[in-house]
Design a binder for these strands. Sequence first.
DNA 1: ACAGCCATGTAACTCGTTACATGATTAC
DNA 2: GTAATCATGTAACGAGTTACATGGCTGT
Lengths: 191, 191
Amino acid sequence: VPASLTTTSFALLGLLAWNDDDPDELTGYELKRRADNTLRFYWVSPAMSQIYTELRRLEDAGAVAASDDHGEGRTTRRYRITSTGRVSLRDWLHQPVLDFPVLKHPIALRLLMGHLMSADQVAAMLERYVDALGNRRGELGAVRDMLGDDARYRYPAMVADWGMTYYDAEERITRDLLQRVRHETRRQPST
Amino acid sequence: VPASLTTTSFALLGLLAWNDDDPDELTGYELKRRADNTLRFYWVSPAMSQIYTELRRLEDAGAVAASDDHGEGRTTRRYRITSTGRVSLRDWLHQPVLDFPVLKHPIALRLLMGHLMSADQVAAMLERYVDALGNRRGELGAVRDMLGDDARYRYPAMVADWGMTYYDAEERITRDLLQRVRHETRRQPST
DNA sequence: ACAGCCATGTAACTCGTTACATGATTAC
DNA sequence: GTAATCATGTAACGAGTTACATGGCTGT
């Protein structure tokens, strides 16, 4: 018995609390897409199977309510947040944040062992990372554009801006490192 | 049977490959401290129990060799990287990096649901985060100072510089957000 | 004498993943 | 007709955590 809700549970619950007035009724599938547009950049976008598992847990906790939709043939379940769910979510938000952000940075990790690679290899790795950053930044930019300046999406927009600034900073740092690596290559040609 | 080595395995193996000439012989405990000074900031510093588990796995894979140290009374095991280990580590570094960095950012996550909090609460959260960032930045700064400009620690120093720049950028962004939240508070006093 | 650090390990458990299985609906 | 997308779930597994257990060594 999993007992209590995790941060990921609350993250998903938060996605169902987007609108105060006209509450969303989402399928697991739709919730996954919403997670891909938001959670992915600052947390984790859980696998589909995990989404369904969490929804079941949230339902057991009374935080969401499901309604089966026996349309024609296919049955879909739509979930909405309950008032109980809103209360727990607010309670959770009221608690002081204990954990510092965790970064799992495979490029930084490898750069730590740069002395085991050739300078060219390090440079190639960093260049590929700059490309990947550009892509990511583009994806987040698209999300940001979708949010517009609608007052309802003020906070999601703020977080998206945060993310974009972060990616910009990251690109700058990486380009600097690239120069540093290339510079030292020139001075000490071979490794 | 766990089969193959993970990124964390290679991260720890990399910590044992610090010096090419005079190879380190570390206990699990010492390895943990080294991880706390480096891996913690860009990857994860595994729990003690995990360190011992990984060392056993690396030993099974022939990547490290252990020597029992029956001093007086207490027996300690010291691990050093083997030539096989160096080869696997190099092989691993030669592979293209497939994964984009993963960020688990509890503050950004909560900010996403800012509309469920009072502006004061959001501001307080961000202020606490700025403090925490300062602490972290200080810790990393101490590590950076220890590395100095020794050519042997060039790459670790580069990564530490990266991290410090990152924390600086993060603090700037957070302060901006803080202003944005306070600004909108003035315009729309209560929530 | 006692706290705090050094040192090693096992056991239970949780989170989340991939792989598997199934099938309806929609667009071309 | 067939590929892509929508939709929902189960099963096996892996990585890593916390809790537990044990004990030596060091400084005050």
